[in-house]
């Protein structure tokens, strides 16, 4: 029981931080709450006996990723979003409840620790036994870096203000066109129906 309570602490913080990360309107805060999730998960990892992952989670998850996010938000600007979500909140709630409760129903009552053949005590699983994963991971990182270069590389000068305006105007025009077209198609489809 005591163990359960001990575990419940980081779990609760993780969940709370996760909820806050979604609820907050500021992007920076959201990124910081994510770091909070990361940190509490790292604690949980440690308690579960996964010491290396805990360290990596702390450094990569809570550290590097947060820095990257803050950096990205700095570039993109911390835009405040309209509060009203596109998908009705009730629908989202219902769907999540159904899916997660079903999953829980499948998993929770039957989850038990299974004793399998004990694994080698060495910590060389990552580098040796699962070496192929590491190799593929290298490929993945290569692709990711190339993707980053591809998306962000600027051959033209970075945007200066007038171009932003121009694009915004273009977008406005496109949107208006789109609205016009959709209203047209609505009208025509209605006409089709009445005919």
């Amino acid at each position: 029981m005591l163990e359960a309570i001990l575990f419940a602490l980081p779990i609760l913080t993780a969940l709370l931080a996760g909820i806050q990360a979604i609820r907050t309107r500021s992007l920076i805060r959201s990124a910081l709450w994510l770091a909070g999730v990361s940190a509490s998960i790292a604690v949980l990892f440690y308690m579960l006996g996964a010491h290396q992952v805990a360290v990596i989670e702390l450094s990569v998850g809570a550290g590097l990723v947060t820095v990257l996010f803050v950096f990205a938000i700095g570039i993109a600007g911390a835009e405040i979003q309209p509060q009203r979500p596109i998908v009705p909140k009730t629908l989202a709630w219902v769907l999540i409840l159904v899916a997660i409760l079903l999953l829980a129903g499948f998993a929770l009552p039957f989850a038990t620790t299974v004793q399998h053949s004990t694994e080698p005590e060495t910590t060389s699983v990552f580098w040796q036994q699962r070496g192929l994963d590491v190799i593929v991971q290298v490929v993945l990182i290569f692709c990711g870096v190339l993707g980053l270069l591809g998306v962000l590389a600027e051959e033209k000068a970075p945007l200066d203000q007038p171009m932003v305006d121009e694009i915004a105007a273009e977008r406005e025009r496109d949107l208006r066109n789109l609205e016009y077209q959709s209203s047209q198609s609505m009208v025509s489809s209605q006409q089709g129906q009445t005919r």
């Binding site: 990892f45 579960l48 006996g49 996964a50 010491h51 290396q52 992952v53 990596i56 989670e57 990569v60 998850g61 590097l64 990723v65 990257l68 996010f69 990205a72 989850a111 038990t112 620790t113 299974v114 004793q115 399998h116 004990t118 694994e119 080698p120 060495t122 910590t123 699983v125 990552f126 036994q129 699962r130 994963d133 590491v134 991971q137 993945l140 990182i141 692709c143 990711g144 993707g147 980053l148 998306v151 962000l152």
Partner: peptide, 28 residues
């Protein structure tokens, strides 16, 4: 649960790294 914590750790590390890359590309 399957008493192979090192295997779990190995997978965990891979996932964290791989998905960091995804997050970076997504941010970009």
């Amino acid at each position: 649960m399957s008493s192979q914590i090192n295997l779990g750790q190995s997978l965990g590390i891979t996932v964290i790294v791989a998905d960091t890359i995804v997050a970076v590309v997504g941010m970009a």
